[in-house]
Write a protein that binds this DNA or RNA. Structure first.
Lengths: 217, 217
DNA sequence: GTCTATAGTTCGATAGAC
DNA sequence: GTCTATCGAACTATAGAC
């Protein structure tokens, strides 16, 4: 039985430890601002080991995105499919299914303060072809699923308006995932973007009202 | 009469040339990814001159934000004030006033492909205290103006819901300013986030529907 | 004000021992 | 698989001539 070094979460492979550390450092400093040295330090491994497992910084980033995205989007797909199993769900349920897996898996406040959700906000808004290629691979398919779902629950919605509605909904969700603290500042402490349930309680009706306005107009 | 070096826009001071170049390079590469060398090259000046005028990279960024923000937010404040001069305007007019100065001044497609709007998207979503301090200085005051305007045109809206509505509206606007090209991909070429007028035509009713849903709920 | 040259640091990546 | 040590290339910022 080989000796096992002390590690933040015992039983975790060093590859996963590196990916976890990458998530935290990329979230805190951005892609360019994150240093391989800092990730290695956070993971408790030598810098050379990261290059052994992931070759380059860019490939490390991609591996980190792939791991968490697959996790989140499998859950999202299952939720939407489940909603249509017994008749046609309400629009509200679709919108909730859009966000809940991301905030529960990626935000995961207890573990890392929402590291992956922050990364998502940054690179989903990037026009860099490298970032958009990642979005296309990992998020466009599930986006098409949601766009189709929107059209099923709101039959008056045209396909192009469903695409716009999806983009706008994601934009609203960004304000929750970015967790900038601005709502608290603007409201004198009343609105807290760290309280995910309170935000969902306002985000869901806001988006549903927006979608239905596109149907009517 | 002193000899004047050839410059991209003649009659412009070198300070302004540097700020213009900074806008383009920061927009293309992000704060960390933008090199002072690249900005100097883009501006057609020596790298040392940037440090002479702006001292550090961070102060250069702040000066660039201040210049464009003052321009945009003065226009926004004037628009909102004008709307209330003869009675109470419609919600739609408020929402339009929220975005048009930014897209016309900061996006400015013909000049730079929307450089400043891209910068705005990136640092408005940042949780870094340095970025939030800039937002607080340059954008929180005009935000309070718009929040108050929302409550005036929709009397049923509580203050906290008005703050949420403002945040959500900004989030929707991000999808226009980021110009990622994703709507075109998702719609098979139909929806174009480069067509600002077409986007505003969908964004305004979407946001107004969302706000009114918060009033009713 | 504007330039050239460079000091001093930090970065991504690799080599090679174990 | 994992570590230490280091290379070579970038970076920000400054010094000093003009």
């Amino acid at each position: 039985m080989p000796l096992q070094a002390t590690r933040a979460t015992p039983g975790e492979s060093r590859q996963d430890a590196i990916l976890d550390a990458a998530e935290r450092v990329f979230a805190a400093s951005g892609y360019q601002g994150a240093a391989m040295r800092a990730i290695a330090g956070e993971a408790g491994v030598a810098q050379g080991l990261i290059h052994y497992h992931f070759k380059t910084k860019e490939k490390l980033f991609e591996a980190m995105v792939a791991r968490r995205s697959n996790q989140i989007n499998a859950r999202r797909a299952a939720l939407v499919a489940g909603l249509f199993e017994h008749g046609t769900p309400r629009l509200e349920a679709i919108v909730e299914a859009l966000f809940r897996p991301t905030i529960e898996t990626g935000l995961d406040l207890a573990r890392d303060g929402g590291a992956f959700a922050r990364i998502l906000v940054a690179f989903a808004n990037s026009a860099d072809p490298r970032d958009q290629k990642l979005i296309e691979t990992h998020y466009d398919p599930i986006a098409q699923t949601f766009i189709a779902a929107l059209m099923r629950v709101e039959p008056g919605l045209s396909r192009s308006d469903a695409v716009w509605a999806y983009m706008f909904a994601i934009g609203v969700g960004m304000t929750m995932m970015a967790k900038t603290g601005r709502p608290k500042r603007l409201s004198g402490g009343v609105c807290d973007d760290g309280d995910v349930e309170a935000m969902l309680d306002r985000i869901v009706p806001f988006i549903c009202g927006g979608v239905r306005a596109l149907v009517e107009g």
